[in-house]
Design a protein around this nucleic acid. Sequence first.
DNA 1: GAAAAATTAGTACATTTGTTCTAAAATAAT
DNA 2: ATTATTTTAGAACAAATGTACTAATTTTTC
Lengths: 203, 203
Amino acid sequence: MDTKDRILEAALELYNTQGIRTITTRHIAAHLNMSPGNLHYHFKHTDDIIRALYARLAGAFDLELIQLQQSATVTMNAILDLSARSFQLVYRYRFIFLHFVEIVWRIPGIGKDYQVLTRRRTREFTRIFQRLIENGIFRTDLPPSIWPALVKQLFIVADFWLSNNELTDRLNEKKAVAAYQKTFYMMFLPFLAEPEKNGRASF
Amino acid sequence: MDTKDRILEAALELYNTQGIRTITTRHIAAHLNMSPGNLHYHFKHTDDIIRALYARLAGAFDLELIQLQQSATVTMNAILDLSARSFQLVYRYRFIFLHFVEIVWRIPGIGKDYQVLTRRRTREFTRIFQRLIENGIFRTDLPPSIWPALVKQLFIVADFWLSNNELTDRLNEKKAVAAYQKTFYMMFLPFLAEPEKNGRASF
DNA sequence: GAAAAATTAGTACATTTGTTCTAAAATAAT
DNA sequence: ATTATTTTAGAACAAATGTACTAATTTTTC
């Protein structure tokens, strides 16, 4: 692991546990027994570190979505599995989600990128839901405008479930994964044509 | 309006528009043509300002909830109206919701208070939903564990809808109110026993 | 093995920030 | 009216922060 990677890993850990307000480049450098000068040789500006971490998160997310899209038929189980795997990413890069608005205000490029990403993901999920309706998995008695609304709900919960956990239950990683998955399952349940049949036995 | 109020109003405006990271007591004082010394005479510590603003928000919220609880029968319309009025509060004190985790980490007292508040509100809503089930407004074919899950979903969306708006659509206040209300309406729709009958014509 | 390039440590600097201190001015109390 | 109290302005301070600079050291290239 080269120096740049070590800096990013240390920054990630410190940001995750102490927030972006209190952690400075000096803290990150000290945590690595490295001089501040050296750190700034690798990352000229503090924001470059955050930018790099966001880029890693976005890249990892893209990989997950590509995998989902490549499967011929999308099942509910595939979607729930995606939610579990993407939570691992959310948790790994949790400081971004816990301070999302702050980061986007501070580094506009990230906001722009997230907007584009979100629009693309919205289209993708709308299409997936379309297919789930056609396959009789989702209900057909609801107004069509419910589906984009569901997508929005899912995005909000996906992005901010962890913030809510931080404000309320403060579950540790293991318990958080389980609770997060259950939340997602429960979000889909009332939309299923036959809840008892299409639901997962494991819950 | 006394000086303390003027400081709080100025702080609220600046925090709302520029975030808590960039705004310092000096900015707030300058915005009021006031000396930093004077500001710190009224609020010894910066955090005291945030604490005072949070207290105002919490107090205003309590008033809303008391009003809902006093009504003999809670209807869907009453809940949707509450959601609209509470959004006005979320918007007025939006810096708190846009930087919630940061604030709670910085001022633990606020986190403690929010936890207690949330638990109480969870119990209240669970009871309300119970009655909506008994009155045949909500479906009865879903597992009972869906209702606490719905409460959690609602809280997450209520607290972070605005953050999501900031990251994606950036709607102004007027449009945001409308979209927020619609989101809430759509969240209840799949839980209604007879969507077409209990739903609102206005959507 | 010498020259060039890279990495690193350490220091330095200007700015900002939260807060305190002092004294002046305004206001209220008697 | 004079005294006491509250409020205000302005300066001052220590700590922290982002980043630049310099020189040393390590690594790579030839």
